[in-house]
Write a protein that binds this DNA or RNA. Sequence first.
DNA 1: TAACATTACTAACGCGCGTTAATCAGAGGG
DNA 2: CCCTCTGATTAACGCGCGTTAGTAATGTTA
Lengths: 362, 362
Amino acid sequence: MSKRITSQDVADLAGVSRTTVSFVLNNEKRFSISPETAEKVRSAAKTLGYYPNASARALASNQTKNIGLIISRAPQYIATDPFLPQILSGLLDVLGQNSQGLLLEWVEPGQQLESYLELTRAHHIDGMILMTPRLDDPGMKALEETDIPVVLMGTIPGSTLHSVDVDNLAAAETAVCHLIGLGHTKIACITNAALPYTSANQRLAGYKSALEKANIAYDPQLVREADFDPQSGYTQMRSLLESKLDFSAVFVASDNVALGAYSAIREVGLSIPEDISVVGFDDIPLASYINPTLTSVAVSGHEIAVESYNLLTSMMRGEEPESLSVTLPTRLIARRSSREIGRSDKRGSETKSAKLVSCFNN
Amino acid sequence: MSKRITSQDVADLAGVSRTTVSFVLNNEKRFSISPETAEKVRSAAKTLGYYPNASARALASNQTKNIGLIISRAPQYIATDPFLPQILSGLLDVLGQNSQGLLLEWVEPGQQLESYLELTRAHHIDGMILMTPRLDDPGMKALEETDIPVVLMGTIPGSTLHSVDVDNLAAAETAVCHLIGLGHTKIACITNAALPYTSANQRLAGYKSALEKANIAYDPQLVREADFDPQSGYTQMRSLLESKLDFSAVFVASDNVALGAYSAIREVGLSIPEDISVVGFDDIPLASYINPTLTSVAVSGHEIAVESYNLLTSMMRGEEPESLSVTLPTRLIARRSSREIGRSDKRGSETKSAKLVSCFNN
DNA sequence: TAACATTACTAACGCGCGTTAATCAGAGGG
DNA sequence: CCCTCTGATTAACGCGCGTTAGTAATGTTA
């Protein structure tokens, strides 16, 4: 077990004090250091292979240089999430540029009460980003009252926490309007998650709103709640299909869930989009690779990650960000899984935009 | 800015010393504490909302309670990785049970030389797990010479580092044998990544080995290197198709890449498995949801994660694990994307196993 | 009653580093 | 020759906690 190399060792080798070492290695401009001494220190550090100890540094400076990404979801629901890597990729990208780290955590929905506070105090992070927040999360209010920098990836209506999100309601509305524009009037809906998750809630609201604007009656029987993964999408789609209810299209509020729906639809011998049009949400990379390619609402995970990071860092610097919440744009990407009702030729649906406009003007 | 609550505050409120507080909250059995005092301390901690500071604790105890997951890949290649969530899920699962944290990092291939050392010393981790190691990684040897607990998720032949992996070679061989068993003799191959990545290398070796055992000549022209994502799979498959080379099946060493291949095959008007049989690798959740369902080599990300964790923790406890490396089993899951050559009926390929045996006995 | 365990607790040091206040050498001005 | 001022460096404290060696009080035995 080789002895650990401390800044004292570097100081000894360079023939200076530990303070000087610290100043040099941290580029401390407030104190002047002669170029020669600086060089001596740097070369000593290099020959010794010195790396400052993160814990000691964090303790002394009260900064860990880490941020936490907290997922309020059990690990089993994380395993199949194709959107998560995009978020991680975006965060790792910006964090890497600033030599910061990313600490991943999850909290069990239902016992978040104390978790968050413990997380910041007891873990090695300067601030945190909360993924997939839930409306019924009691820890959320506790968080509002602390001075810990927090950014929500998502929205909690009425919360004073800063947040980054897409306009789930409007996006879902656009997606369903797209279907309506294609002539569909019997449209089912499978949510992306349980309704306490705000994104699920809002996307469902968007679905309802689109129906309302088109004067289509809302039928609760046509709505199912999925649970993040394809399996749940399969189950809920089967349930819809077996209900013998009449519908020609389905809005699935998550591409990952939509995959399961695809599979269920195929299994009963129906085809997409001839028998059922499908519109997803998230535009995960696979959306353009599955068959038929999936019409979906594009959400940029990278952008969400970067905006969250920016908001968080400005808070960590002590600034009060100008905007409480950032809303990012979405874009409906029409592909082959949705087409005009009744059509049987092979072409896609190019009349989309015109119809969409009419929907908005209704 | 409310003052931070320290163990001294708890001690004061409880009317005991800070040492006692530490003993109580850490369940220190070596020293006896009366139940009454313990209770006093605990309630004081609760009323104050005390959470021990992680950095201070880490500094004093020389344990951060975090492990690092290091990915040697640029963020852009992380974004579409459907296997990563499985690993994360598994790790978060076991880590959560032991109230440990997961620090995510990535290092740019090409400049890993110093990165690893810096990571452990300078970051807040007790040990690390390295994902997707590369043969040409100069940092690997540096790691071997340190006493930092490291576990490789993957294999570096000849390395003294502990590792967890599946037998990529044998698994790939099985996959290709499966195709050979179905009568295919012209079999193309698209790797999962560039060949310096050991998994890519070994899977390609398995492909070659299977051909050799079946006395099929190896044709380098039928091999393409992909790059983790569907896009690269698409590109390479297009390249194969446009080469006008003759082949009836393709072994794609990653399901994610295979998705791109699917798309390319469809695009030129061919169908799977009628014209081309496809076998993937990883058995990501989506494999059973795409059309046609994808024959693939099942690899349990959860199991890999758990085994890596176990190996790592035993090393962190100072034990020398009995086994240098753990090899986990894989299982070929035959689905609809592969079938006997020339068949045109709708049934799947039930004769697989018999053929497989003959392949192994050749 | 003295000698000795045993139990219950605490004083004090050190982990490695950031940072403030202080020191020191030398330059320049009177 | 003394004094001030600037530039270069350091002594020393504190971050919050784990932990060892030690003290004080209470039984326990001869």
